Simulated scan of single mutants.
Amino acid sequence: MWRVRDEGFRTGVHRVRGRRRRSGARRGAGLRRGAGQPEIAGLPTAGPLTDWGLPLARFAHDLCAVACVGTLLAAAVLAPATSPESARCLRAARGWALGWAFATLLSYVLTLSSFIPMPVAGLLAAPDMLAFGTELPQTRALLLVLAVTFVSAAATVLPKVPRWVPLAVAAFGLLPPAYVGHAASAGTTISPSPR
């Protein structure tokens, strides 16, 4: 049980029912083991790299996707077509698209590692396990996003391509992850009540 001082901060050592209890070092040591989930004896685990890396890779994926679409939107809509600002936005979008591709590839490997469950090193050593990712809807969607990000990055380099084309391609790249997984069928579980 935490005792809170008047300032609202947690103290380091507490007396709870006559015993001294340290909160900082002993509780913080549990964070080094993984994402806070205890291992169950006999069940394989993906390891701490997957436990910690997958949320970070998903964050990087979302950040790069939003930044890529945002800079492409600025290049296509806000900046005049022949201005240096538009060219700068396209260069920035290309960088964000390549970062998005890297984060997508990392998310693919870590999602597959989490699903199988197998440590990343073992997964990378077995090419047949990496190919198993084409069977899962989540990882298939990530492969589609990976292709879309490379097309979007290539479309920013070509001079004759209208500015809205890489924007449309990148906006399409946002869709596949939304249509897979448990949230994709959430609309079918709730039916309206009859009147």
Score class of each variant (00 low, 15 high):
residue 114 S to P: 04
residue 156 T to L: 03
residue 60 A to N: 02
residue 42 G to L: 05
residue 104 T to R: 01
residue 77 V to L: 15
residue 126 A to S: 11
residue 152 S to Y: 10
residue 172 F to T: 15
residue 109 V to L: 10
residue 171 A to Q: 01
residue 29 A to T: 15
residue 178 A to Q: 15
residue 172 F to A: 08
residue 157 V to T: 10
residue 189 T to L: 15
residue 24 G to T: 12
residue 117 P to A: 02
residue 25 A to C: 07
residue 157 V to G: 04
residue 62 D to A: 11
residue 159 P to A: 14
residue 133 G to F: 04
residue 155 A to V: 12
residue 6 D to W: 11
residue 40 I to T: 14
residue 37 Q to I: 13
residue 93 A to G: 04
residue 8 G to F: 12
residue 176 P to E: 00
residue 69 V to C: 05
residue 49 L to D: 01
residue 126 A to Y: 09
residue 104 T to K: 03
residue 105 L to M: 08
residue 90 L to Q: 05
residue 185 S to N: 08
residue 184 A to D: 07
residue 70 G to W: 07
residue 190 I to L: 15
residue 106 L to P: 02
residue 132 F to Y: 15
residue 168 A to Q: 10
residue 71 T to A: 13
residue 1 M to Q: 07
residue 69 V to L: 11
residue 98 L to Q: 03
residue 171 A to R: 05
residue 32 R to G: 08
residue 32 R to F: 10
residue 84 P to R: 05
residue 34 G to D: 13
residue 151 V to Q: 00
residue 106 L to F: 04
residue 126 A to E: 15
residue 67 A to N: 03
residue 60 A to I: 09
residue 108 Y to Q: 02
residue 63 L to M: 07
residue 47 G to A: 04
residue 25 A to I: 11
residue 151 V to C: 08
residue 135 E to W: 02
residue 127 P to S: 00
residue 55 P to C: 00
residue 124 L to E: 04
residue 75 A to D: 01
residue 32 R to Q: 10
residue 81 A to R: 08
residue 188 T to W: 15
residue 112 L to Q: 01
residue 15 R to I: 15
residue 194 P to H: 08
residue 120 V to A: 05
residue 88 R to G: 07
residue 142 L to H: 01
residue 70 G to R: 00
residue 31 L to C: 00
residue 168 A to R: 03
residue 1 M to I: 13
residue 182 H to T: 14
residue 14 H to A: 09
residue 87 A to W: 09
residue 113 S to R: 02
residue 65 A to Q: 04
residue 38 P to G: 05
residue 83 S to Q: 06
residue 163 R to T: 08
residue 139 T to R: 00
residue 169 V to Q: 04
residue 98 L to A: 01
residue 71 T to Y: 09
residue 134 T to S: 14
residue 54 L to T: 07
residue 188 T to F: 15
residue 77 V to D: 08
residue 122 G to F: 10
residue 67 A to W: 07
residue 40 I to P: 03
residue 74 A to D: 07
residue 121 A to Q: 15
residue 6 D to R: 05
residue 193 S to M: 13
residue 167 L to V: 07
residue 26 R to Q: 12
residue 170 A to K: 05
residue 185 S to I: 13
residue 78 L to G: 04
residue 192 P to E: 11
residue 185 S to D: 09
residue 93 A to M: 06
residue 66 V to G: 00
residue 35 A to F: 09
residue 53 G to W: 14
residue 176 P to K: 00
residue 156 T to Y: 05
residue 81 A to T: 14
residue 114 S to G: 02
residue 104 T to A: 08
residue 20 R to G: 06
residue 111 T to E: 05
residue 121 A to D: 14
residue 133 G to Q: 03
residue 105 L to H: 02
residue 113 S to Q: 06
residue 82 T to C: 07
residue 36 G to R: 07
residue 105 L to S: 04
residue 105 L to A: 13
residue 181 G to W: 03
residue 34 G to S: 09
residue 194 P to D: 07
residue 195 R to C: 04
residue 11 T to F: 07
residue 57 A to H: 13
residue 8 G to S: 03
residue 74 A to F: 09
residue 48 P to H: 14
residue 179 Y to W: 12
residue 87 A to Q: 14
residue 87 A to I: 12
residue 96 W to D: 11
residue 131 A to V: 08
residue 146 L to A: 06
residue 180 V to D: 02
residue 61 H to V: 12
residue 76 A to M: 05
residue 111 T to V: 10
residue 11 T to E: 11
residue 82 T to N: 14
residue 153 A to L: 04
residue 187 G to F: 14
residue 38 P to C: 06
residue 148 V to G: 02
residue 118 M to A: 12
residue 38 P to H: 15
residue 114 S to H: 07
